[in-house]
């Protein structure tokens, strides 16, 4: 707690951690889509941008309360997610990925061309409403919600689709519906994340949300470990803080970042926590820290 307070009192750390939390919310949404349901999405940042623009415009033009705008941004992103998912969820794997990527680019170009969004210049003067505490609470809520989802009949259906879609269908799972639902829930989280982003940086423009950002989110999820909630938290933390830690290498920063991505994949293709059951791990650790009598077995 003391430590947390210290961090909040240091504006630089606070900003870094706030951004990390914001990305984490979007990444958790992507983890539901890709990690749990097994569907590729290479355009997740576009849904962030939809949430960001919607909520920022509501704040600027309608002066409705921040939390209402945030929620509306999430819902609009979820709705767009449904619109995209219905036709495209028939596609699988890379085809779905490339379609979502294309959708993301189209959204970006649309925002560049729309007047109300300020075109390529973007929207400025968004009031600062996002603070660390709000983000922290929303992260906790998202993690909690995701845990409940994956440990339910609904979540099992998603996992079944990921494991074997044909078998899932013959077990009675309406795969298309579930994929659309999972996709739109993921997009909802992206929209919330986008709203927080807009009201934190106070300025957004379409190039903030290109496919580079989408792939960054995908990196968080894959490097953390697909289908692992702690993995996504860790992946987002490591990768979004890495550029900060790598500041000392100055211009070589992104060079190292790129090489690191390759190395991480080559050495841990399933991500840092992929295939690791944290519950088991803790139990094993506990056993190991107990008196030697219990220290039998182990690898």
């Amino acid at each position: 707690m003391e430590f947390l307070l210290d961090i909040i009192n240091n504006p630089y750390y606070e900003q870094v951690l706030t951004m990390m939390g914001i990305y984490l919310i979007a990444a958790l949404g992507l983890n539901l889509i890709t990690g749990y349901t097994g569907q590729f999405s290479f355009g997740h940042a576009a849904f962030m941008s939809i949430g960001a623009y919607s909520s920022a415009l509501m704040t600027l033009k309608m002066h409705t309360p921040f939390l209402v705008n945030l929620l509306a941004g999430g819902l609009i992103a979820a709705f767009c997610g449904i619109l995209l998912a219905f036709p495209s969820m028939r596609l699988t794997g890379d085809y779905l990925g490339i379609t979502t990527l294309g959708f993301g680019e189209i959204v970006r170009v649309l925002f560049i061309n729309m007047e109300i969004t300020g075109g390529a210049i973007g929207l400025a003067g968004i009031p600062k409403e996002t603070d660390f505490v709000t983000v922290f609470v929303l992260v906790i809520l998202s993690v909690w919600g995701l845990y409940r989802i994956v440990n339910s009949r609904f979540g099992r259906a998603l996992a079944a689709i990921r494991e074997d879609e044909i078998a899932a269908e013959t077990m009675g799972v309406n795969a298309l519906m579930y994929k659309v639902e999972s996709f739109s829930i993921g997009c909802f989280l992206a929209g919330i994340s986008g709203g927080l982003y807009a009201h934190s940086l106070q300025y957004i423009n379409p190039s903030d949300f290109g496919f580079a950002k989408s792939f960054e989110l995908l990196n968080f999820v894959v490097i953390g470990g697909l289908g692992s909630i702690p993995g996504t938290v860790l992946g987002t933390a490591v990768l979004s803080l890495a550029p900060e830690f790598l500041r000392f290498v100055k211009e070589y920063r992104m060079l190292i970042y790129g090489a690191l991505m390759v190395a991480m994949m080559v050495f841990r293709p399933n991500g840092i926590l992929g295939g690791v059951n944290l519950g088991d791990l803790f139990r094993r650790l506990k056993r190991r820290t107990k008196p030697p009598a219990a220290a039998s077995g182990g690898a």
């Binding site: 409940r148 989802i149 609904f154 979540g155």
Partner: peptide
């Protein structure tokens, strides 16, 4: 029957 809402 339980769906997404039920899960939450």
């Amino acid at each position: 029957r339980a769906g997404f809402i039920g899960a939450l």
